[in-house]
Structure formats: structure tokens, C-alpha cells
Design a binder for these strands. Structure first.
Length: 170
DNA sequence: GCCAACGTTGGC
DNA sequence: GCCAACGTTGGC
């Protein structure tokens, strides 16, 4: 039996689709479509219902982890690959053997204060994180349990710090 | 807006 | 199979 993955990170440009959009979506759920990278697709295919997801805003100011979502439907064919009018239309993908998949994710929570990329870079425990690798562009990536815990901890600390002068800034 | 890093394409 | 050219990503 293979190891079961539990934690992931999904990137989205907030101008295209933000965590706020997810929170306001019907059933607070969306199909994560448009992924057109084989490595990212393979990670989508490895996702299981209940897996936890860090929601990351790329091309944002500042780029940050902004909250948590969860997988509510495992991989199935991405409809946009067959839609000529869609920006992600792929004319070389055929319905009898779809090339691209998507999953459904549901909003869990938005961090009170986002955890910015530059703060992540300062964490010794996150040195191996895919997101922080130079040149990394992977929009769907696995997150180690230790990394997940560290980021959730950072989100909590930043939340609890609000309004308190006694907790030193770092 | 710049540009480094990356993935894909296609000529050979 | 090689690799130059190209388009995209995404931090800065």
C-alpha cells in the first residue's frame, strides 16, 4: 500500500480566483480546473477526499498563504479542455482519453492574517518546501505534515498577536 | 515592467 | 535525441 497523502498547496492568482471567491461560491465549493502541467495534474490525481489544502495567492501583494480548503471530490476530467471558447482549451486532448483532470475543493477557513512568502522563507522548518524552491512554479504541490503544522502555527501566531504589544514582532 | 526559471514545441 | 526558440509563471 502506498503512503497516503494528506496535505497539499494550491496556487491561484487572486485576480483570477481568490479565497474570497471560494468562500462565496455555491456550497463554498469549486472545481479546480485549468491545470495544464503534467506534474501538477499527477498531484491532482493523487488527491483523496478529505485531504487538506493550503490556499496560496500568487502574483499577489504580498504573495501569501491565505487559508485552508479541503478536497471534496477526487480527480475527474476537466471540462474546459474540450471547450473551444475556454482559455484552457486543449485541441489535442480527446474525450475518450482526457488529458487533464480537476478536483473539487471546499472552503474551510480564511486566515485572519495571511502568512506571506517572505515569512515562510525565514522558517528553518520549511527549508525543503516546494513552494520555496528557486524557480518553482508548480501550481499543485504536496506539503509535508511538518510543513503544514508549521504554517498553521504561523497563521495562529499572527492571529493571536493582533492587538497585543507584548508579543514581540519577528 | 523586468527577467530568471521552467515546460513545451518542432526542426533537424 | 538534441536543443534553440518560444510562451508562461511569478517574485520582485
Amino acid at each position: 500500500m502506498t503512503e497516503r497523502r494528506r496535505y497539499w498547496l494550491l496556487k491561484s492568482e487572486p485576480e483570477a480566483f481568490s479565497i474570497h471567491d471560494l468562500a462565496r461560491a455555491p456550497k463554498q465549493t469549486t472545481a479546480w480546473d485549468g491545470v495544464r502541467n503534467y506534474q501538477a495534474r499527477n498531484f491532482l490525481r493523487a488527491m483523496q477526499i478529505g485531504d487538506q489544502v493550503l490556499f496560496y495567492h500568487s502574483n499577489a501583494d504580498p504573495p501569501s498563504v491565505v487559508g485552508v480548503a479541503e478536497v471534496v471530490k477526487a480527480a475527474y476530467p476537466d471540462a474546459t479542455q474540450f471547450d473551444r471558447g475556454d482559455a484552457h482549451y486543449d485541441p489535442s486532448s480527446h474525450p475518450d482519453q482526457p488529458r487533464w483532470d480537476m478536483v473539487d475543493v471546499r472552503f474551510v477557513r480564511q486566515f485572519t492574517v495571511p502568512v506571506p512568502l517572505d515569512l515562510l522563507r525565514k522558517q528553518v522548518g520549511l527549508k525543503r518546501m516546494e513552494l520555496l524552491r528557486k524557480g518553482s512554479r508548480l501550481s499543485v504541490q504536496p506539503v509535508r505534515q511538518e510543513e503544514w503544522k508549521e504554517i498553521i502555527r504561523l497563521a495562529r501566531r499572527r492571529t493571536s498577536r493582533r492587538g497585543s504589544e507584548r508579543i514581540p514582532q519577528q
